[in-house]
């Protein structure tokens, strides 16, 4: 489980906007949010930067 959707909706940005900001397709964001695709470390870092957080907050499970 990741918290990409939680952070994205918190910032009130759409999947499309987030996708174009980090250079991926909207479907990719959708797949990541629904835990159907495990992104590479590179993409995780881009996501964290775009959402103004870090990898621990986004992907680490307690």
């Amino acid at each position: 489980m990741n918290r990409v959707k939680e952070y994205r909706t918190g910032l009130k940005i759409s999947q499309i906007k987030l996708a174009s900001e980090i250079g991926v397709a909207r479907q990719t964001i959708n797949m990541i949010e629904n835990n159907k695709y495990n992104p590479s470390l590179d993409l995780c870092i881009k996501l964290a930067k775009a959402l103004g957080t870090d990898l621990n907050q986004l992907f680490w499970e307690e």
């Binding site: 996708a19 397709a25 990719t28």
Partner: peptide
């Protein structure tokens, strides 16, 4: 036609 990202 769209983005060819790592998932695709």
């Amino acid at each position: 036609d769209g983005e060819l990202d790592e998932y695709r």
